[in-house]
Each structure stands twice: as C-alpha cells, then as structure tokens.
C-alpha cells in the first residue's frame, strides 16, 4: 500500500509529538526521584571515602552528623556566594568547574568531624580523564594534609572488568596510607604502577590495573592535579590560617 506524501508527513508528525510528549512526561515525573538518588549517591561516595557505609544505613542522617562542607577558591579563601546566590558545596558541578582554568574553579571541601569539634579528614572531590570518558571521585586526606585516608573512584564509560575496576574497593584500598607530598613538601601524588603484583612499599606508589593502563594513568594524573589545585587551601589548613574552619 503506497501512501501519499501528506499522509506520511502527518503520520510522522503525530508519532513524533506523541512519543516526544510521553518521554517528556516520563522525564519530568521521574526527575525528583532521580535527583534524590543522585544526591544520595554523591553523599554515599563522600562518606565511603573514609568509612564503610553499611547497606541500609541512613546515609543522609550520617552525612548530616559528620560532614561540614564549604567551598574555597584556588587560593584557599572561602567562597560564600556567587553572583549574589549562596553556594552549596554539594551542588557545585565538578564537571562544569573542570572546564574552567584551575585558578577560576570553585573547590568544594567536605570536612569530616571527629565528633568533638576537631577535624578527622578533608574529603576533596577529584575529576579527570579516563580512557573513554571522564573519571571522578573523592580523596580523603588526613588532618596532616598529606596522608591519604581513603579514596573512592567512579567513572562514566570505562571498560567493565578492566578500567571500570577503579570502582572496586580492593583497588581503592591500595591508596590508603599513601602520601601526596615528598619529603620537601612538594606535591608529587601517587604513581600507579604497571602490573599488579609488586605490592610497592613506597608511599607514592600503588599497584596498577592489568589491561587498563590508560585508566590507571588517568587516576594518577587526576589525583596529582587536584592535590596541586587544593594546595592553596591545604597550606592554609597547615598554617591554621582558617578562621572559618573552627567557627
């Protein structure tokens, strides 16, 4: 059966409107739930860089109790508002900030309190390039601003079983206890080695991922660059020049 051009145009238009309408409806209806899940996931990542989050525990409750967050700039000064609007550290889009030059970015800091007014860890977001797409995560620094207390990594499109293994606890645990500064106080980060069974004792080296060298190098450079960018803030912490931290 051969239909006229008019019929085809009308049919296509109606189909497009119906399908588009349905999808728009679904997107709008599901948006709040997705936002909640994303927010929950973000907070869970932040927490799990320093602690084991049990399944079924009230993430929002723990987060509210333990985490104090604020935003700093490249020089380590706190940024309270942007263009008249107050900034919420959890809502700073790291991916968009990544496109700006390092000096212009906003740097959120999630401070883990030890329950008696002191600081247990500074949890800093990190972001960089993997093999196929972006990789990101959180790195928790001890209050000495040098020792890594824990890391979490995540990715958008790394190869399952290879690069995607950066999300595994076993890989992330390798970073625990490593340090980011050398003896002279320079930031040198953590080198991800090639091969997987060397078990390096060097505080600046961890075992790599077989078959995922580029993702592993991405992790390495992401940690190094962000630790450099946070130096403004970390130096201020070290010299206790952070009037707002202890407020």
């Amino acid at each position: 059966m051969q239909q006229s051009n008019l019929y085809i145009v009308i049919f296509s238009t109606v189909l497009t409107i119906v399908l588009g309408g349905l999808l728009a409806l679904a997107a709008v209806a599901l948006r709040p739930e997705q936002k909640k899940q994303e927010d929950m996931f973000r907070k869970k990542s932040i927490l799990s860089s320093v602690m084991t989050v049990e399944k079924g525990s009230d993430i929002l409750q723990i987060y509210g109790d333990k985490i104090k967050s604020y935003v700093v700039d490249y020089d380590g000064n706190e940024v309270k508002e942007l263009e008249g609007k107050p900034i919420v550290a959890e809502n700073v889009p790291i991916n968009k900030e990544f496109k700006k030059s390092p000096e212009e970015r906003l740097y959120p800091v999630f401070e883990m309190t030890d329950g008696s007014g002191g600081v247990e860890a500074y949890i800093l977001p990190i972001y960089g390039n993997g093999l196929w797409d972006k990789i990101y995560g959180y790195l928790a620094l001890d209050k000495d601003c040098n020792t890594i207390k824990g890391v979490v990594f995540d990715h958008i499109g790394e190869t399952p079983g290879l690069g995607a293994r950066i999300t595994e606890k076993e890989f992330q645990a390798r970073f625990k206890g490593k340090t980011i500064n050398n003896d002279n106080g320079q930031v040198i980060g953590v080198t991800v080695l090639k091969g997987e069974s060397t078990n390096p004792t060097d505080p600046h080296q961890v075992d790599g991922l077989s078959g995922a060298t580029i993702t592993a190098k991405g992790v390495e450079s992401m940690i190094l660059s962000y630790m450099e960018h946070y130096q403004g803030f970390l130096r201020k912490v070290k010299s206790s020049d952070l009037s707002y931290v202890n407020q």
Binding site: A26, A27, L30, E33, Q34, Q37, M40, F41
Partner: peptide, 8 residues
C-alpha cells in the same frame, strides 16, 4: 529513566 530513578 526508570532505572536511573529506582535502580541507580
């Protein structure tokens, strides 16, 4: 969309 909302 459904997966993102309920099986994140």
């Amino acid at each position: 969309q459904v997966l993102k909302a309920y099986f994140f």
